[in-house]
Design a protein around this nucleic acid. Structure first.
Lengths: 188, 188
DNA sequence: TAATAAATCAACACTTTGTTTAATAAAAAG
DNA sequence: CTTTTTATTAAACAAAGTGTTGATTTATTA
Protein backbone atom coordinates (compact mmCIF):
# COMPACT_ATOMS: atom_id res chain seq x y z
CA UNK A 1 0.00 0.00 0.00
CA UNK A 2 1.14 3.48 -0.84
CA UNK A 3 4.31 2.26 -2.50
CA UNK A 4 3.52 3.47 -6.02
CA UNK A 5 3.09 7.11 -5.03
CA UNK A 6 6.41 8.33 -6.30
CA UNK A 7 6.37 11.99 -5.41
CA UNK A 8 7.89 12.46 -1.99
CA UNK A 9 5.94 15.66 -1.41
CA UNK A 10 2.66 13.79 -1.60
CA UNK A 11 3.93 11.13 0.73
CA UNK A 12 5.03 13.73 3.23
CA UNK A 13 1.79 15.71 3.00
CA UNK A 14 -0.38 12.68 3.55
CA UNK A 15 1.79 11.59 6.43
CA UNK A 16 1.64 14.86 8.35
CA UNK A 17 -2.08 15.20 7.71
CA UNK A 18 -2.69 11.74 9.12
CA UNK A 19 -0.47 12.39 12.12
CA UNK A 20 -2.22 15.62 12.92
CA UNK A 21 -5.60 13.98 12.48
CA UNK A 22 -4.83 10.99 14.69
CA UNK A 23 -3.50 13.30 17.37
CA UNK A 24 -6.78 15.19 17.30
CA UNK A 25 -8.78 11.96 17.34
CA UNK A 26 -7.24 11.15 20.69
CA UNK A 27 -8.86 14.24 22.14
CA UNK A 28 -12.24 14.35 20.42
CA UNK A 29 -14.53 12.58 17.98
CA UNK A 30 -14.29 13.17 14.22
CA UNK A 31 -17.42 15.26 14.30
CA UNK A 32 -15.70 17.92 16.38
CA UNK A 33 -12.55 18.05 14.30
CA UNK A 34 -12.35 20.77 11.65
CA UNK A 35 -10.29 20.65 8.48
CA UNK A 36 -8.75 23.95 9.49
CA UNK A 37 -7.50 22.34 12.71
CA UNK A 38 -6.05 19.35 10.91
CA UNK A 39 -4.17 21.62 8.49
CA UNK A 40 -2.82 23.86 11.22
CA UNK A 41 -1.56 20.84 13.14
CA UNK A 42 0.07 19.44 10.02
CA UNK A 43 1.32 22.85 8.84
CA UNK A 44 -0.29 22.25 5.49
CA UNK A 45 -2.41 24.56 3.39
CA UNK A 46 -6.12 23.92 3.43
CA UNK A 47 -6.19 23.75 -0.36
CA UNK A 48 -3.66 20.94 -0.18
CA UNK A 49 -5.94 18.97 2.11
CA UNK A 50 -8.76 19.25 -0.40
CA UNK A 51 -6.43 18.04 -3.13
CA UNK A 52 -6.23 14.68 -1.34
CA UNK A 53 -9.37 14.25 0.73
CA UNK A 54 -13.00 15.32 0.48
CA UNK A 55 -13.38 15.93 4.21
CA UNK A 56 -12.54 14.58 7.67
CA UNK A 57 -14.70 11.53 7.15
CA UNK A 58 -13.05 10.67 3.87
CA UNK A 59 -9.68 10.92 5.57
CA UNK A 60 -10.82 8.69 8.41
CA UNK A 61 -12.21 6.19 5.94
CA UNK A 62 -8.95 6.03 4.01
CA UNK A 63 -6.93 5.46 7.18
CA UNK A 64 -9.29 2.67 8.15
CA UNK A 65 -9.09 1.07 4.74
CA UNK A 66 -5.32 0.96 4.91
CA UNK A 67 -5.47 -0.95 8.16
CA UNK A 68 -8.17 -3.27 6.89
CA UNK A 69 -6.05 -3.98 3.84
CA UNK A 70 -3.14 -4.98 6.02
CA UNK A 71 -5.17 -7.17 8.34
CA UNK A 72 -6.78 -8.78 5.31
CA UNK A 73 -3.40 -10.17 4.33
CA UNK A 74 -3.27 -12.22 7.49
CA UNK A 75 -6.71 -13.76 7.11
CA UNK A 76 -6.47 -17.24 5.69
CA UNK A 77 -8.99 -20.06 5.50
CA UNK A 78 -9.89 -22.01 8.60
CA UNK A 79 -10.81 -19.19 10.91
CA UNK A 80 -12.50 -20.90 13.81
CA UNK A 81 -11.38 -24.39 14.50
CA UNK A 82 -8.95 -24.40 17.44
CA UNK A 83 -6.05 -25.52 15.27
CA UNK A 84 -2.40 -24.42 15.59
CA UNK A 85 -2.82 -22.64 12.24
CA UNK A 86 -5.65 -20.55 13.61
CA UNK A 87 -3.66 -19.70 16.70
CA UNK A 88 -0.76 -18.70 14.52
CA UNK A 89 -2.95 -16.49 12.37
CA UNK A 90 -4.52 -14.75 15.33
CA UNK A 91 -1.17 -14.22 17.00
CA UNK A 92 0.10 -12.48 13.89
CA UNK A 93 -2.97 -10.28 13.70
CA UNK A 94 -2.70 -9.27 17.34
CA UNK A 95 0.95 -8.58 16.85
CA UNK A 96 0.06 -6.27 13.97
CA UNK A 97 -2.57 -4.53 16.09
CA UNK A 98 -0.01 -4.09 18.85
CA UNK A 99 2.40 -2.49 16.39
CA UNK A 100 -0.34 -0.09 15.35
CA UNK A 101 -1.83 0.20 18.79
CA UNK A 102 -2.05 3.98 18.79
CA UNK A 103 -4.35 4.24 15.79
CA UNK A 104 -6.22 1.01 16.51
CA UNK A 105 -6.99 2.17 20.02
CA UNK A 106 -8.38 5.42 18.65
CA UNK A 107 -10.47 3.78 15.94
CA UNK A 108 -11.93 1.14 18.24
CA UNK A 109 -12.22 3.47 21.21
CA UNK A 110 -14.92 5.89 22.27
CA UNK A 111 -14.10 8.40 19.53
CA UNK A 112 -13.96 5.78 16.81
CA UNK A 113 -16.78 4.96 14.48
CA UNK A 114 -18.76 1.81 13.87
CA UNK A 115 -17.64 1.53 10.28
CA UNK A 116 -14.17 0.25 11.13
CA UNK A 117 -15.58 -2.40 13.44
CA UNK A 118 -18.09 -3.33 10.79
CA UNK A 119 -15.39 -3.80 8.17
CA UNK A 120 -13.33 -5.92 10.52
CA UNK A 121 -16.19 -8.32 11.13
CA UNK A 122 -17.21 -8.43 7.47
CA UNK A 123 -13.65 -9.49 6.77
CA UNK A 124 -14.10 -12.76 8.60
CA UNK A 125 -17.79 -13.16 7.97
CA UNK A 126 -17.94 -15.11 4.73
CA UNK A 127 -15.16 -17.45 5.77
CA UNK A 128 -16.98 -18.09 8.98
CA UNK A 129 -20.42 -18.83 7.62
CA UNK A 130 -19.24 -21.19 4.91
CA UNK A 131 -17.07 -23.17 7.30
CA UNK A 132 -19.95 -23.43 9.70
CA UNK A 133 -22.67 -24.58 7.38
CA UNK A 134 -20.28 -27.14 5.93
CA UNK A 135 -19.12 -28.68 9.20
CA UNK A 136 -22.31 -28.87 11.18
CA UNK A 137 -25.91 -29.27 10.22
CA UNK A 138 -26.94 -25.73 10.97
CA UNK A 139 -29.33 -23.60 8.98
CA UNK A 140 -28.03 -20.49 7.28
CA UNK A 141 -30.24 -18.43 9.57
CA UNK A 142 -28.91 -19.94 12.79
CA UNK A 143 -25.37 -19.73 11.51
CA UNK A 144 -25.81 -16.00 10.98
CA UNK A 145 -26.85 -15.52 14.58
CA UNK A 146 -24.03 -17.63 15.95
CA UNK A 147 -21.56 -15.85 13.75
CA UNK A 148 -22.84 -12.49 14.90
CA UNK A 149 -22.64 -13.46 18.54
CA UNK A 150 -19.10 -14.77 18.34
CA UNK A 151 -17.72 -12.07 16.09
CA UNK A 152 -19.13 -9.04 17.86
CA UNK A 153 -18.26 -10.67 21.17
CA UNK A 154 -14.67 -11.21 20.12
CA UNK A 155 -14.33 -7.69 18.77
CA UNK A 156 -15.61 -6.43 22.10
CA UNK A 157 -12.96 -8.46 23.89
CA UNK A 158 -10.28 -7.15 21.55
CA UNK A 159 -11.39 -3.59 22.27
CA UNK A 160 -11.11 -4.28 25.96
CA UNK A 161 -7.66 -5.83 25.52
CA UNK A 162 -6.52 -2.77 23.58
CA UNK A 163 -7.98 -0.20 25.92
CA UNK A 164 -6.35 -1.86 28.90
CA UNK A 165 -2.87 -1.70 27.44
CA UNK A 166 -2.67 -5.20 25.96
CA UNK A 167 -1.45 -6.88 29.14
CA UNK A 168 -1.88 -10.39 27.82
CA UNK A 169 0.70 -11.49 25.27
CA UNK A 170 -0.34 -11.81 21.63
CA UNK A 171 -0.14 -15.57 21.90
CA UNK A 172 -2.07 -16.03 25.12
CA UNK A 173 -4.65 -13.57 23.91
CA UNK A 174 -5.04 -15.60 20.71
CA UNK A 175 -5.71 -18.64 22.88
CA UNK A 176 -8.34 -16.73 24.82
CA UNK A 177 -10.13 -15.66 21.65
CA UNK A 178 -10.09 -19.20 20.30
CA UNK A 179 -11.60 -20.44 23.53
CA UNK A 180 -14.38 -17.87 23.32
CA UNK A 181 -15.07 -18.69 19.68
CA UNK A 182 -15.15 -22.40 20.46
CA UNK A 183 -17.54 -22.05 23.38
CA UNK A 184 -19.76 -19.69 21.41
CA UNK A 185 -19.90 -22.20 18.58
CA UNK A 186 -21.32 -24.81 20.92
CA UNK A 187 -24.50 -22.79 21.29
CA UNK A 188 -26.10 -25.22 18.82
CA UNK B 1 -40.05 10.56 32.59
CA UNK B 2 -41.05 13.99 31.32
CA UNK B 3 -44.26 14.03 33.38
CA UNK B 4 -43.39 16.98 35.59
CA UNK B 5 -42.83 19.39 32.73
CA UNK B 6 -46.07 21.25 33.08
CA UNK B 7 -45.93 23.74 30.24
CA UNK B 8 -47.52 22.22 27.19
CA UNK B 9 -45.53 24.44 24.85
CA UNK B 10 -42.28 22.92 26.06
CA UNK B 11 -43.67 19.42 25.68
CA UNK B 12 -44.73 20.15 22.12
CA UNK B 13 -41.47 21.82 21.16
CA UNK B 14 -39.36 18.96 22.45
CA UNK B 15 -41.59 16.47 20.73
CA UNK B 16 -41.40 18.02 17.28
CA UNK B 17 -37.67 18.60 17.60
CA UNK B 18 -37.14 14.95 18.44
CA UNK B 19 -39.38 13.79 15.62
CA UNK B 20 -37.57 15.94 13.10
CA UNK B 21 -34.21 14.77 14.40
CA UNK B 22 -35.07 11.08 14.32
CA UNK B 23 -36.38 11.44 10.78
CA UNK B 24 -33.05 12.97 9.77
CA UNK B 25 -31.11 10.26 11.60
CA UNK B 26 -32.68 7.70 9.32
CA UNK B 27 -31.01 9.36 6.36
CA UNK B 28 -27.62 10.38 7.70
CA UNK B 29 -25.34 10.31 10.76
CA UNK B 30 -25.56 12.95 13.47
CA UNK B 31 -22.39 14.56 12.23
CA UNK B 32 -24.06 15.55 8.97
CA UNK B 33 -27.21 16.91 10.58
CA UNK B 34 -27.32 20.66 11.19
CA UNK B 35 -29.35 22.42 13.84
CA UNK B 36 -30.85 24.58 11.12
CA UNK B 37 -32.16 21.46 9.40
CA UNK B 38 -33.66 20.07 12.59
CA UNK B 39 -35.46 23.33 13.28
CA UNK B 40 -36.79 23.65 9.76
CA UNK B 41 -38.14 20.10 9.91
CA UNK B 42 -39.76 20.80 13.25
CA UNK B 43 -40.92 24.29 12.28
CA UNK B 44 -39.31 25.70 15.37
CA UNK B 45 -37.13 28.75 15.78
CA UNK B 46 -33.43 28.11 16.12
CA UNK B 47 -33.29 30.13 19.32
CA UNK B 48 -35.89 27.79 20.78
CA UNK B 49 -33.68 24.82 20.05
CA UNK B 50 -30.82 26.43 21.92
CA UNK B 51 -33.15 27.04 24.86
CA UNK B 52 -33.41 23.28 25.32
CA UNK B 53 -30.31 21.67 23.88
CA UNK B 54 -26.69 22.63 23.47
CA UNK B 55 -26.33 20.97 20.07
CA UNK B 56 -27.23 17.90 18.01
CA UNK B 57 -25.15 15.66 20.20
CA UNK B 58 -26.77 16.88 23.38
CA UNK B 59 -30.14 16.19 21.83
CA UNK B 60 -29.07 12.71 20.81
CA UNK B 61 -27.72 12.05 24.27
CA UNK B 62 -30.98 13.08 25.93
CA UNK B 63 -33.02 10.86 23.64
CA UNK B 64 -30.72 7.97 24.47
CA UNK B 65 -30.92 8.62 28.18
CA UNK B 66 -34.69 8.49 28.09
CA UNK B 67 -34.59 5.06 26.54
CA UNK B 68 -31.92 3.86 28.92
CA UNK B 69 -34.03 5.07 31.83
CA UNK B 70 -36.99 3.03 30.60
CA UNK B 71 -34.97 -0.12 29.98
CA UNK B 72 -33.38 0.30 33.39
CA UNK B 73 -36.78 -0.22 34.99
CA UNK B 74 -36.94 -3.74 33.58
CA UNK B 75 -33.51 -4.80 34.80
CA UNK B 76 -33.78 -6.80 37.98
CA UNK B 77 -31.33 -9.02 39.77
CA UNK B 78 -30.43 -12.41 38.37
CA UNK B 79 -29.46 -11.44 34.87
CA UNK B 80 -27.81 -14.52 33.51
CA UNK B 81 -28.98 -17.78 34.94
CA UNK B 82 -31.41 -19.46 32.55
CA UNK B 83 -34.32 -19.10 34.97
CA UNK B 84 -37.93 -18.36 34.06
CA UNK B 85 -37.52 -14.97 35.74
CA UNK B 86 -34.66 -14.09 33.42
CA UNK B 87 -36.64 -15.15 30.41
CA UNK B 88 -39.55 -13.06 31.59
CA UNK B 89 -37.32 -10.03 32.08
CA UNK B 90 -35.74 -10.33 28.66
CA UNK B 91 -39.08 -10.85 26.97
CA UNK B 92 -40.34 -7.61 28.50
CA UNK B 93 -37.22 -5.73 27.39
CA UNK B 94 -37.50 -7.00 23.83
CA UNK B 95 -41.16 -6.12 23.82
CA UNK B 96 -40.22 -2.58 24.84
CA UNK B 97 -37.58 -2.43 22.12
CA UNK B 98 -40.13 -3.62 19.60
CA UNK B 99 -42.52 -0.88 20.67
CA UNK B 100 -39.74 1.67 20.15
CA UNK B 101 -38.24 -0.09 17.18
CA UNK B 102 -37.97 2.99 15.00
CA UNK B 103 -35.67 4.91 17.32
CA UNK B 104 -33.84 1.82 18.59
CA UNK B 105 -33.06 0.74 15.06
CA UNK B 106 -31.62 4.16 14.31
CA UNK B 107 -29.56 4.36 17.49
CA UNK B 108 -28.13 0.87 17.13
CA UNK B 109 -27.82 1.05 13.36
CA UNK B 110 -25.10 2.37 11.11
CA UNK B 111 -25.88 6.01 11.88
CA UNK B 112 -26.04 5.45 15.62
CA UNK B 113 -23.23 6.07 18.02
CA UNK B 114 -21.28 3.85 20.35
CA UNK B 115 -22.40 5.70 23.44
CA UNK B 116 -25.89 4.21 23.46
CA UNK B 117 -24.52 0.70 23.12
CA UNK B 118 -22.01 1.45 25.84
CA UNK B 119 -24.71 2.62 28.24
CA UNK B 120 -26.80 -0.45 27.53
CA UNK B 121 -23.97 -2.79 28.43
CA UNK B 122 -22.96 -0.78 31.47
CA UNK B 123 -26.53 -1.20 32.66
CA UNK B 124 -26.13 -4.94 33.04
CA UNK B 125 -22.44 -4.92 33.82
CA UNK B 126 -22.31 -4.64 37.60
CA UNK B 127 -25.12 -7.13 38.06
CA UNK B 128 -23.31 -9.51 35.83
CA UNK B 129 -19.87 -9.35 37.39
CA UNK B 130 -21.08 -9.69 40.96
CA UNK B 131 -23.25 -12.68 40.14
CA UNK B 132 -20.38 -14.30 38.34
CA UNK B 133 -17.66 -13.90 40.91
CA UNK B 134 -20.07 -15.15 43.57
CA UNK B 135 -21.27 -18.28 41.79
CA UNK B 136 -18.09 -19.60 40.29
CA UNK B 137 -14.51 -19.41 41.32
CA UNK B 138 -13.43 -16.97 38.66
CA UNK B 139 -11.01 -14.10 39.07
CA UNK B 140 -12.27 -10.55 38.62
CA UNK B 141 -10.04 -10.25 35.58
CA UNK B 142 -11.40 -13.34 33.84
CA UNK B 143 -14.94 -12.38 34.75
CA UNK B 144 -14.44 -9.05 33.00
CA UNK B 145 -13.41 -10.74 29.79
CA UNK B 146 -16.26 -13.23 29.89
CA UNK B 147 -18.70 -10.47 30.64
CA UNK B 148 -17.38 -8.41 27.77
CA UNK B 149 -17.60 -11.30 25.36
CA UNK B 150 -21.15 -12.22 26.26
CA UNK B 151 -22.50 -8.71 26.54
CA UNK B 152 -21.05 -7.28 23.35
CA UNK B 153 -21.94 -10.52 21.59
CA UNK B 154 -25.55 -10.32 22.75
CA UNK B 155 -25.84 -6.66 21.82
CA UNK B 156 -24.56 -7.57 18.37
CA UNK B 157 -27.24 -10.24 18.07
CA UNK B 158 -29.90 -7.78 19.22
CA UNK B 159 -28.76 -5.31 16.57
CA UNK B 160 -29.06 -8.01 13.95
CA UNK B 161 -32.51 -8.98 15.20
CA UNK B 162 -33.63 -5.34 15.01
CA UNK B 163 -32.15 -4.62 11.63
CA UNK B 164 -33.80 -7.68 10.15
CA UNK B 165 -37.28 -6.69 11.24
CA UNK B 166 -37.50 -8.68 14.48
CA UNK B 167 -38.76 -11.85 12.83
CA UNK B 168 -38.36 -13.97 15.95
CA UNK B 169 -40.95 -13.37 18.65
CA UNK B 170 -39.90 -11.54 21.81
CA UNK B 171 -40.15 -14.77 23.78
CA UNK B 172 -38.23 -17.03 21.42
CA UNK B 173 -35.60 -14.34 21.00
CA UNK B 174 -35.25 -14.15 24.77
CA UNK B 175 -34.61 -17.89 24.76
CA UNK B 176 -31.97 -17.47 22.08
CA UNK B 177 -30.16 -14.79 24.06
CA UNK B 178 -30.23 -16.90 27.21
CA UNK B 179 -28.74 -19.78 25.29
CA UNK B 180 -25.94 -17.59 24.00
CA UNK B 181 -25.22 -16.16 27.44
CA UNK B 182 -25.21 -19.63 28.96
CA UNK B 183 -22.81 -21.05 26.38
CA UNK B 184 -20.58 -18.04 26.63
CA UNK B 185 -20.43 -18.44 30.39
CA UNK B 186 -19.04 -21.92 30.00
CA UNK B 187 -15.83 -20.51 28.53
CA UNK B 188 -14.24 -21.11 31.92
C1' DT C 1 19.02 22.41 -16.52
C1' DA C 2 14.33 22.19 -18.19
C1' DA C 3 9.86 20.40 -17.65
C1' DT C 4 6.52 18.87 -14.61
C1' DA C 5 3.81 18.53 -10.68
C1' DA C 6 2.69 19.86 -5.92
C1' DA C 7 2.06 23.01 -2.33
C1' DT C 8 1.18 27.78 -1.06
C1' DC C 9 -1.17 32.17 -0.64
C1' DA C 10 -4.93 35.19 -0.75
C1' DA C 11 -9.29 36.06 -1.82
C1' DC C 12 -13.97 34.68 -2.65
C1' DA C 13 -19.02 33.83 -1.71
C1' DC C 14 -21.51 30.88 1.14
C1' DT C 15 -23.39 28.34 5.15
C1' DT C 16 -23.85 27.37 9.82
C1' DT C 17 -23.27 28.79 14.42
C1' DG C 18 -24.43 30.74 18.86
C1' DT C 19 -26.11 34.85 21.02
C1' DT C 20 -28.94 38.88 21.75
C1' DT C 21 -32.80 42.07 21.58
C1' DA C 22 -37.55 43.33 21.52
C1' DA C 23 -42.00 41.78 20.18
C1' DT C 24 -45.60 38.34 20.32
C1' DA C 25 -48.23 34.49 21.79
C1' DA C 26 -49.68 31.10 24.97
C1' DA C 27 -50.16 29.03 29.51
C1' DA C 28 -50.65 29.11 34.54
C1' DA C 29 -52.07 31.46 38.67
C1' DG C 30 -55.08 34.30 41.13
C1' DC D 1 -61.69 36.49 33.31
C1' DT D 2 -57.69 39.05 34.03
C1' DT D 3 -53.07 39.39 35.34
C1' DT D 4 -48.69 37.59 35.55
C1' DT D 5 -45.41 34.68 33.99
C1' DT D 6 -43.08 32.15 30.66
C1' DA D 7 -42.09 30.19 25.98
C1' DT D 8 -41.52 31.13 21.39
C1' DT D 9 -40.60 34.10 17.59
C1' DA D 10 -38.20 37.26 14.42
C1' DA D 11 -34.37 39.72 12.92
C1' DA D 12 -29.89 40.89 13.18
C1' DC D 13 -25.08 40.03 14.50
C1' DA D 14 -20.17 38.67 14.52
C1' DA D 15 -17.49 34.68 14.26
C1' DA D 16 -15.88 30.55 12.26
C1' DG D 17 -15.56 27.06 8.90
C1' DT D 18 -16.33 25.56 4.11
C1' DG D 19 -15.06 24.60 -0.58
C1' DT D 20 -13.24 26.65 -4.63
C1' DT D 21 -10.39 29.56 -7.55
C1' DG D 22 -6.22 31.57 -10.01
C1' DA D 23 -1.70 33.10 -9.74
C1' DT D 24 2.76 32.16 -7.63
C1' DT D 25 6.44 29.66 -5.55
C1' DT D 26 8.81 25.62 -4.53
C1' DA D 27 10.33 20.89 -4.97
C1' DT D 28 10.86 16.66 -7.77
C1' DT D 29 11.78 14.04 -11.73
C1' DA D 30 13.76 13.13 -16.06
Amino acid sequence: METKKTDRRVKYTKMVIKESFVALLKEKPVSKITIKEICEGADVNRATFYAHYADQYDLLRKIEEELIFDVHQYITGDCISPSPATKDMLTKIFSYIRKNAEICRVLLGDHGDNYFQEMLTQLVRQQFISEWTAQKSVSQDDAEYIYTFILTGCVGVIKKWLSQGMQKSDESFAELIIRFADKGSSAF
